[in-house]
Design a protein around this nucleic acid. Sequence first.
DNA 1: CTGAAAGCGCTTACAG
DNA 2: CTGAAAGCGCTTACAG
Lengths: 367, 367
Amino acid sequence: MTGKPITEARKEARAARPTVTTIAEHLGLSRSTVTGVLTGRAAELRIRPETQRRVLEVAQELGYHPNALARSVRSGKSHMIGYLVNDPHYEPYWNTIIGALAEAEASGFTLKLLSVDSRTLGQRVEQCMQLRLAGVIARVTQDPRSLFEAADRAALPVVMVDQDVPRPFGVRVAADDSFGCRAAVSHLVGLGHRRIAFLSHGFDAAGITLIPERERLFLEEMAARGLEVPPGYVARETMLVYGPETADGLDPSTVAAATDSLLSHPAGRPTALFCWRDETALIAIRACRRAGLRVPEDISVVGFSDIRAAQLSDPTLTTCRSPWEEMGRTAVRQLVQALEADFDPSPRTVLLPSGFVARESSGPAPA
Amino acid sequence: MTGKPITEARKEARAARPTVTTIAEHLGLSRSTVTGVLTGRAAELRIRPETQRRVLEVAQELGYHPNALARSVRSGKSHMIGYLVNDPHYEPYWNTIIGALAEAEASGFTLKLLSVDSRTLGQRVEQCMQLRLAGVIARVTQDPRSLFEAADRAALPVVMVDQDVPRPFGVRVAADDSFGCRAAVSHLVGLGHRRIAFLSHGFDAAGITLIPERERLFLEEMAARGLEVPPGYVARETMLVYGPETADGLDPSTVAAATDSLLSHPAGRPTALFCWRDETALIAIRACRRAGLRVPEDISVVGFSDIRAAQLSDPTLTTCRSPWEEMGRTAVRQLVQALEADFDPSPRTVLLPSGFVARESSGPAPA
DNA sequence: CTGAAAGCGCTTACAG
DNA sequence: CTGAAAGCGCTTACAG
């Protein structure tokens, strides 16, 4: 009496969601034959065409979908890539995710999104292990050391995006900002600007410095052209912590203050402002106007990133273009290679060139 | 001679990635005992504390991570939610995804991102079935009928977000724009505006009309206040197809043309422009300036959505706030409920209220 | 308290 | 050409 209902229930469940066994029973074949057809090894196994047809037909009819999870268990490969992200609100980060998604799908992988904060990092990493992810891409503000260590132990490939890696481990994909900076300075100099100021940032979290080299690159470019940057011609905004309310960690008042300090600089007002990112540049434009200056007639403003708002603002923003999507694509490509034999496991950084796009916020230097 | 190397290889693989069996062998216990401890049923099974301790210790030591995939196969539940999205570039959609991610993780689910276009829709849906997703959230421009039908057959719960559903099936989560529209019109009328024009859109793809009722709601609100909307006071931009290059389907030139037609309207220039979305409003502001008008002194402009650029523009944009993130959260909540007993499976729409935020682009009507 | 057995859904050698 | 067997990693009754 006990065996019967259990079998009945199982039969029902089976009917609801057909398996290889269901199909085999339907046709009076063995499961191996069914799998043989379903995995495309029919020719190799010399399964009769008639049998093939019938298997396919019944599979279709029953609405059979092979269980990818079971296949993964069997094969030991999951074809899933995880993307650990700290703040997906920030436009550049999600553009990176979009690039990763496109490349993952093109390579036959699936992308799993995992959000992290300082409290959940460990938990998420554990989840990655349990889900048997093929690899993980990470862009986190927290110290990623624990991530690396755990991944190391489990032989889980990790690629960091747009972020310094604390020790020689794993692969890092980042943007090479030098082209953008060079192009921006060239552009401004070509327009007759000599007094160019830089609007930088003062932000660091848990010792990880975010894209800090733009300021350095600017100074290098200026020096290379023999142009002086008076002391105080580099001002700093203060970033807040990233979060849903301040998607980009921007505190407009500190940007405005920094801009004002540049505009009233004792060495004379700069004719151009190069800002470390677009959000900063847009707020700087606003501050310039409040100070009675026209952009770009009285002062040129250049940003960095090419976020969406750079095209919607008035004037549209001249800016350096960061290869966010390409960074995502590259991260996936690195991961996919890591799963193949020819993978070079040495710690390294893959740099992608930045670009530059001239729009309306920059113009000839005032006479 | 054949059996030996195979066993050896297996042992090695096992060593590399420990399983319940590895732990059991290590301790000379049976797998059931190990699982009992690992699944927290130790008390219930009255497993000796000493045994528990040893199991946990060895698990830790060996770096054991339970295989979530195998667990899913066994239990028949995956705890994965899929998010099918057509164009993740568009900021509002992205925000919805973020909301869904947060809620999914809070509910113990994991989120899988799947991009679709007209060519891949069928393929992705098949993928959802194969991955045994617990449910799917979809925001796609394509006709989702095939998605519904396939999901129907496989008993896969689907929630559509911000989108009309072609037939009475499944759950739809959308924004109720009426509050936003009412608040916007009230706001403008309160500022003394009477001649208010609406900048709308002419876009439909495969018969699916996107958020079309804002125009209707505007007209209703005006009528409710006895305010006349002269013919031609509703203009239309023409949207392009969404895509990586035009993340929001915006064609600035058609927005500018539509704005110009309103500014030179024979019945007299409107004192306020209500735009169906923020991108449109920002371009409209630009067009107004080109026409020599100041915003908001000469003309007020109001948008809809509250995208990031609305806060970065100068002037900052007065706009209706769509509950994008909350829509994502709600979609997940609906899905999670669908997996529980008390789920109401009747086709229905869950509406979330929109908000309103007054910023600088609106001001008193000119005298 | 613990182990042997059966099973989730799938696949791959290996016999015949 | 096809089937019986073994196995991926996990878990749950069921005996003892």
